[in-house]
C-alpha cells in the first residue's frame, strides 16, 4: 500500500470513523458516499460517526499461509466482527491463543501496527481487536 492510499484512510484506520444515514439510521463502515438504501435522498444527510470499536466475532479463521507482509505472524486469528453499531469489519484478533477465538466472543478494538512497507518504507497502523 502506498503512503497516500494509507494516509487518506487514517481516520478510518485509527479511529473507526464510519458514517450514518440520517434518513434510515443505517451505519456504514467504511463510510459510503451515499446510503445504498436511501440513495439520492441520503445525499447531504449522511454524517460521519465514530464507532465504539466494540462488537462480537461473527465468523473467523486462523491464517496459516499468509501474504508476505504477515508471514512472521502465522498462525494468526482473523475475524469478521459485527460492531455494536451494525457494520461488519474484517480484522485480526490479538493478545490471545488462536484457539480461543469463538463465534459470539466479545471484542474491542486496539491500536496496532498493521504493515510495514519493507525495512525502509512507512509504517502503517490501524485497528485490530482483542477479547474483552
Amino acid at each position: 500500500m502506498s503512503v497516500p492510499r494509507f494516509w487518506r484512510e487514517i481516520p478510518q484506520r485509527y479511529n473507526l470513523i464510519g458514517n450514518k444515514c440520517e434518513i434510515c439510521s443505517k451505519v456504514y463502515f467504511p463510510p459510503r458516499e451515499s446510503c445504498p438504501v436511501c440513495r439520492r435522498k441520503s445525499i447531504g444527510h449522511i454524517k460521519d460517526l465514530k464507532l465504539s470499536g466494540k462488537g462480537e466475532v461473527f465468523t473467523y479463521s486462523i491464517i496459516h499461509v499468509s501474504s508476505g507482509e504477515f508471514e512472521e505472524q502465522v498462525p494468526y486469528p482473523i475475524a469478521i466482527i459485527k460492531l455494536d453499531e451494525g457494520p461488519m469489519i474484517t480484522a485480526q484478533i490479538v493478545d490471545c491463543d488462536p484457539d480461543c477465538v469463538k463465534i459470539g466472543m466479545r471484542v474491542e478494538s486496539t491500536f496496532r501496527q498493521i504493515q510495514q512497507d519493507g525495512y525502509t518504507g512507512a509504517l502503517y497502523y490501524g485497528y485490530k481487536f482483542k477479547k474483552v
Binding site: 500500500m1 492510499r5 484512510e9 467504511p30 461473527f58 465468523t59 473467523y60 479463521s61 491464517i63 499461509v65 499468509s66 501474504s67 507482509e69 504477515f70 505472524q73 494468526y76 482473523i78 475475524a79 469478521i80 469489519i89 474484517t90 480484522a91 485480526q92 463465534i103 498493521i114 504493515q115 502503517y124 490501524g126 485497528y127 485490530k128
Partner: peptide, 21 residues
C-alpha cells in the same frame, strides 16, 4: 485491498470465514 487484504485477510481466509459460519 483496503478493508480485507490490508488487515491480513487472505483469499483462502475469506472462504474460511464462509466455512466457519
Amino acid at each position: 485491498q483496503e478493508w480485507e487484504a490490508f488487515f491480513g485477510a487472505t483469499f483462502p481466509g475469506l472462504y474460511a470465514f464462509i466455512a466457519t459460519r
